[in-house]
Amino acid sequence: MSTDTLIRTGEAPFPLTGINKPCNTWYTVCGDLKSGKTPLIVLHGGPGIAHNYLLPLFDLYASHAIPVVLYDQIGTGLSTHFPEKMGDGEFWVEQLFLDQLNGLIEHLKIREFDILGHSWGGMLGARFATSRPFGLRRLVLADAPASAQLWCAAEDTLRATLPQDVQDALTKGDTEGTTESPEYKAAYSVYFERFVCTIVPLPDDIVKAFEAISEDPTVLFTMWSNLDFGSNGTLQGWSVIDDLHKITAPTLVVHGRWDVAQDSVVEPFFKYIPRVRWYTFGESSHFPHYEERERYMQIVGGFLADD
C-alpha cells in the first residue's frame, strides 16, 4: 500500500507566555485520523533531533492501518526555533515539551491515541504517561533510558569495549578539547557504527535529522550536552524511575542488543510499570526501526493493534 497520497502536513499554534513572536508546532500525518483506528503520536529524540529519522514508522499505516503523527518539538526542525534561548535552563524544561504535546493533541482533536517515544522522546513519553492523561491507550518506550545516569553509565561501559587505540583517541579528544580533529572523529565513528546505527552509509533521513542539530544546537546543548559522551545539561539528573508505577497504560519496551539503551538502562521500565512487555532486537543498535525494519513493524504494530 502506497502512503504517499495519504500524507499531509500542518502547523499547530503553540503560544508561549512572554514570547512576542508566533510559535508553531510543525506536524505531518500519515493516514486518516477519523478512520476509527487509534492514531500513534511519535515523539522524537535528541532533544533537538528532527522528526525525519522516524519516517519509517509510516510503515505502520501500510502494515496495520494505524494513522501516524510525527512532529518537530519546539526549537527543532520545522517548528519554531529560539536560538536566543541558548543556555536558558528556565525556558528549556520538560514541561515545555509536555505542554506542546498536549497542544498538538488538542489541535488535531484526537480523543484516544497511542504514544511512541524514541530515546529522549521515550523519556518524555514516560513522564507524560505517569500523569495518566485522558485518551492515552498504549505506550511504546523505544531505545529510551529510565534515567540519565543509567544512560551515561552504559555509554562508559560500551566505550570500554572498543579497541584501545579508539578509546585513547576519544579520551584525548575529550580531555584536550580536540573533538573536531580527524583522529577523534574517526574514533567516534567506530563507536557510532557499533552502538548508534550499524547501517553504513547512514540512511538519508537519519543524516537530515542530525543536520538539525548542526543547524541549531540550542535545545541539545542546553538540555543534554555539548559533548558526545555524558550529560552536562539540565537533564543530567533526570529520572522517571520513582514514578513508573503510576503508568497504567499497557506499555511495550523495545531496544537493540547493541543499543546504548542497554538492558540496565531500560530494566526499570520492565520492573516498575505494572502492565509491560519487553522486546530486544538482536541485530540492532539504537535505530532498530531501520536496522530490523520489517520485524520492528511486526512487533510494534502487533502490540498497538492488540485489543
Rank of each mutant, 00 (worst) to 15 (best):
S2M: 07
D4L: 11
T5S: 09
L6R: 14
G10D: 03
P15D: 07
K21H: 08
C23L: 07
C23S: 10
Y27T: 15
G46W: 03
G48A: 02
H51W: 12
A62Y: 01
Y71H: 09
D72A: 02
T80M: 01
T80S: 05
H81Q: 08
F82Y: 03
G87N: 13
G89W: 01
V93Y: 04
E94K: 05
E106G: 15
H107F: 07
L108T: 10
E112V: 14
S119P: 02
A126I: 07
A126S: 15
F128R: 06
P133K: 08
E155F: 02
T157P: 01
L158Q: 11
R159Q: 06
L170S: 02
G173A: 12
D174Y: 11
D174C: 14
E180S: 15
E180F: 15
S181R: 04
K185A: 01
Y191N: 09
F192Y: 14
F195L: 02
F195C: 02
T198A: 14
L202H: 12
D205F: 04
D205Q: 13
K208T: 11
A212R: 11
N226P: 00
D243G: 01
H245S: 05
H245P: 00
T248E: 06
V254C: 06
A261K: 05
E267Q: 12
F269T: 12
P274L: 12
F281H: 07
G282P: 05
F287L: 14
M297F: 05
G301A: 09
A305R: 15
D307S: 12
D307K: 14
